[in-house]
Nucleic acid binder design. Structure first.
Lengths: 109, 109
DNA sequence: TTCTATCCATAGATAGTCTATATATAGGGC
DNA sequence: GCCCTATATATAGACTATCTATGGATAGAA
């Protein structure tokens, strides 16, 4: 592994959904929120973010709406659908089980 | 996500290295060990396992030796090199930081 | 007017896992 | 003797997700 990855593959959708559980947010804001909450450890590149948002839209887990930001810029605000909220629960639960399983292997027995 | 993945992408190398920190083991045995330690939650498919072992060999993190098993079958036993032991430490540390960062995002702030 | 930060988006490269397939054999059950 | 299962290694090709690189646009500060 020549370079440290910015994200753990497979967790981006979950992180985006989580960010949207608080309030609707535009793409750029989502990326900033994840970066900030992780103390700059996680960085969401645009090339990962926007394809991910397209995936989520296609699955019906988020919906989007063009609006103006507080700073007078046009932006696409994403918000969770009911299905998206459910999906977040699923992914969170699956993630926790996965981490626990990896933890068991790492502890050895 | 139509199907639950058997592994978290990016963690397989670490899990293999961890398994080998205890004692040398052949590929099939490594897969069984990971499955068993994780209470059957993690399944390492052959198509993931052997390419991963090739990667680890190429990087010089493990070395391999053909031997007979206790049950009289030929098998390729892998063991950690010094570099591999160091690499495991790195990956473990990186993994823990990553999990902690994701945890901070999931907790919200 | 130039620069930075904000904002969106896609194309192509890369990496890692999974599916499917191939090969081989020890040992148990019939 | 023969079949089946578990053991054991390995690769090719598909698939998915991320990253790199690029393109465009504009508000506001310097």
């Amino acid at each position: 592994m020549p370079k440290k990855p910015e994200l753990m593959p497979g967790t981006l959708d979950m992180l985006i959904l989580k960010t949207l559980t608080r309030h609707p947010q535009h793409g750029y804001g989502i990326a900033l929120a994840i970066k900030r909450l992780s103390d700059d450890f996680l960085t969401v590149e645009e090339g990962s973010l926007y394809p991910a948002l397209q995936r989520l839209l296609l699955q019906g887990w988020v919906k989007a709406e063009w609006k103006m930001t507080e700073t007078n810029r046009r932006a696409r605000y994403y918000s969770l659908t009911a299905a998206g909220r459910k999906q977040f629960g699923l992914e969170l639960s699956q993630f926790e089980k996965m981490i626990a399983a990896i933890g068991r292997v790492l502890e050895g027995a």
